[in-house]
Nucleic acid binder design. Structure first.
Length: 260
DNA sequence: ATTGAGACCTGTCGGC
DNA sequence: TGCCGACAGGTCTCAA
């Protein structure tokens, strides 16, 4: 999409989690995507009109790209079930936004609306950025009475971690998901060793995930703990098994033996 | 202010 | 085969 123009935008329904903004199509069509970036789990496409297209996959969203027919065949195929938004780009590519559960987001923001966007402005640091480290994590967890698991799910603490990678990172760091979040910091908010371990584990887990893509990992079932209830711990030398517990309404997977 | 519960919506899977 | 409940990768709102 980057560097190309929206030649035509098609909506196959009037809303996802929220209604599409008024004149969504008209405001996009003719505009060029100047830059495609990401913040937390949000995709941001800056358009030449000055607006920013904000996209989120929710739980079940995905993009599918069909390239133009260079082999003499027709252009990209028709929209299928749950293809709610279709971008026909000037490159010849067609980009389908598919989202069965419709928990996703597709919004178009003016510069002012972007700057004031509540979901974006409250976000914590990007976990792969240099600013995110043990000290930053400890500072954010200072005084938190909630569990480590719940704290890491809080996008204000660190941006972009979800239910899978929180479990994975806690396992790498050998920290129990039930520990009170504040225990990784001293009373004054300085990082303990556990804070450094956890920040490093988050970075490691995400770097591997980005390299392999979540879909591959999920399909290959190569998680350390996620969705492995009752199976053996993969930590070298650990004979524990993986348990599942619900925290704040979400499943947490952890090893009872090596995570403290 | 923080925190947990419920809601949003559809698909899939296991048990009966 | 078919029905039913449980559960799913996220975020928002509301009430305690």
């Amino acid at each position: 999409m980057e560097g190309f123009r929206f030649e035509r935008v098609t909506l196959h329904r009037s809303d996802l989690r929220a209604p599409f903004p008024r004149r969504f199509r008209a405001r996009l069509e003719g505009g060029t995507v100047e830059e495609l970036t990401r913040r937390a789990k949000y995709l941001l496409a800056r358009v030449s009109s000055g607006d920013t297209l904000l996209m989120h996959l929710g739980m079940s969203g995905s993009f599918r790209i069909e390239l133009g027919g260079q082999d003499g065949r027709d252009r990209a195929g028709d929209a299928g079930r749950h293809d709610h938004v279709v971008f026909h780009m000037s490159s010849g590519a067609t980009v389908f936004f598919n989202d069965p559960r419709r928990f996703g987001v597709m919004d178009l923001l003016s510069p002012a609306a972007l700057a004031a966007h509540p979901a974006l402005s409250g976000l914590g640091p990007e976990p792969l950025s240099p600013e995110f480290d043990g000290a930053a994590l400890a500072g954010a967890c200072r005084g938190k009475k909630t569990s480590l698991k719940t704290a890491l799910m809080d996008q204000r603490v660190v941006a972009g971690l979800g239910n899978i990678y929180v479990s994975e990172a806690l396992h790498v760091a050998k920290l129990s998901p039930h520990r009170q979040a504040s225990t990784i910091a001293t009373p004054s908010g300085r990082p303990r060793d556990s804070a450094h371990r956890l920040a490093a584990a988050i970075k490691k887990v995400l770097e591997v995930a980005v390299a392999r893509t979540t879909a591959d990992i999920y399909r290959e079932s190569r998680f350390r703990v996620y969705d492995r209830e009752g199976e053996r711990c993969r930590q070298r030398g650990c004979l524990g098994s993986i348990r599942r517990r619900t925290q704040a309404g979400r499943s947490t997977f952890y090893c009872t033996k090596c995570q403290r």
